[in-house]
Amino acid sequence: MPTTAQQTIVAVAEKPWRRSLGARGIRQGIVRWFCFAAALVSVATTFGIVTVLLTQSWPFFQHVSLASFFGGTVWKPTTSPPSFGILPLITGTLMITVGAGLVALPLGLLSAIFMSEYAPKRVRGILKPALELLAGIPTVVYGYFGLFFVTPLLRHVLPSIQSSNALSGAVVVGIMILPLVSSLCEDALAAVPRALREGAYGLGSTKMEVTTRIVVPAALSGIMASFILALSRALGETMAVTLAAGANPQLTLNPAKSIETMTAYIVNTSKGDISTTGLVFPSLFAVGATLFAITMVMNLIAQRLVKRFRQVYA
């Protein structure tokens, strides 16, 4: 049976510990609610963007049917009568996105494989910052780079190429998203456990066999996610394609011709004086809603691919 003095000593010793537990619980609660508030802001922002796009584009679709909007082949919003067929803008946007992917995806993956599997530490320390430096260049600089360097260079191969063309826009956007592909692919390759490589080497595999048959398939989910993310970035690029690809909304698959993307139309129209009483102003939100829908579909595809190819290692 403890004495009264012993009980007093135990109670005094427990009070600081209890106070410490109480303060820790309060701090954890504050951090938890702060993180919840940050997540709530992200969700609220997305909801606000969707609400603005739908409410502002609704007057447009009251006068233009969905069939003529998505099925029309002529985009001339300022003519009389106006024509709002968005297919030329969608085709131009997809030409830039696919062309940029053809440039950035293989180069980014190969550079990531080199830095992750082949490059010495010293070479990697120089090459990676130099490659990521491309991500810090303003997009308007890429636009002038395509206009005054890439297009004259392409004219030696295609003499009939126009001064503003889809091919030049695709090349500069591909160079612009190259650091994103390379960095994310390298992170995915570095996440593959070292034991898989050592096991393959122990079975007599070569460096090439380990890279192509073990490391790349194991990191496929991260690689696919980086591809979709980079293409989404190319899909929403504005200034580079506005300067390099032009502002001629025509339905064509010829990369040597001038085109106009959805983002370029929004920029070119917004920088002028627009009357809010006509259909030109709400058409900006209709085009923005279409671009948002395409981007959302690409993100959903990325999530499905990540779940499909994900591999978990102990």
Rank of each mutant, 00 (worst) to 15 (best):
G143L: 00
C35V: 15
V312K: 08
T91I: 12
F281H: 14
L89W: 05
G71Y: 07
S182P: 02
Q62W: 11
T51A: 12
M95Q: 05
L66Y: 15
S116W: 11
Y201P: 03
Q7I: 09
F292R: 09
I96H: 01
T8L: 12
F34A: 14
S283M: 14
K257D: 12
Q250I: 14
I214E: 06
P217N: 03
V287D: 07
Q28I: 11
L291N: 13
P152F: 10
K271Y: 10
A11L: 11
S275T: 07
P59H: 11
T45V: 15
V98W: 01
L291W: 07
L105V: 12
V215H: 05
M176L: 15
T212N: 02
T93A: 05
A190K: 14
F149C: 13
Y142A: 00
T261S: 15
L89A: 13
N165C: 03
P159W: 08
V241F: 01
T91D: 05
G22C: 09
L131F: 02
L131I: 11
L243N: 00
L158I: 14
P179I: 00
L184S: 03
A5T: 12
L21T: 10
G246A: 00
V52L: 14
A289N: 10
L189P: 06
Y313P: 02
S258Y: 08
W58K: 15
S65V: 14
I259P: 04
T261Y: 05
P152E: 04
G25S: 12
G125Q: 04
L131R: 02
L105G: 01
S232W: 00
F227P: 02
R194G: 15
G169N: 06
V306Y: 06
T79P: 04
L153V: 14
I228D: 02
P59L: 13
G108D: 05
A13C: 05
F34T: 15
A170K: 04
G71H: 13
L251I: 09
S183L: 04
W58D: 08
V43M: 09
A256V: 07
M262G: 11
W58T: 15
T206L: 10
I274G: 03
T211D: 05
F148T: 10
A119Q: 05
S168E: 07
L158P: 02
A188G: 08
I90L: 15
T269W: 06
H63F: 06
R124N: 10
L184E: 01
M262N: 05
A38D: 01
F61C: 07
A245M: 03
F148E: 10
E117I: 07
P159K: 08
K121Y: 11
L184C: 01
K271S: 09
Q56Y: 11
T269V: 13
T263F: 08
P217R: 10
A38R: 08
Y144H: 01
I9R: 13
F114Y: 15
G174K: 01
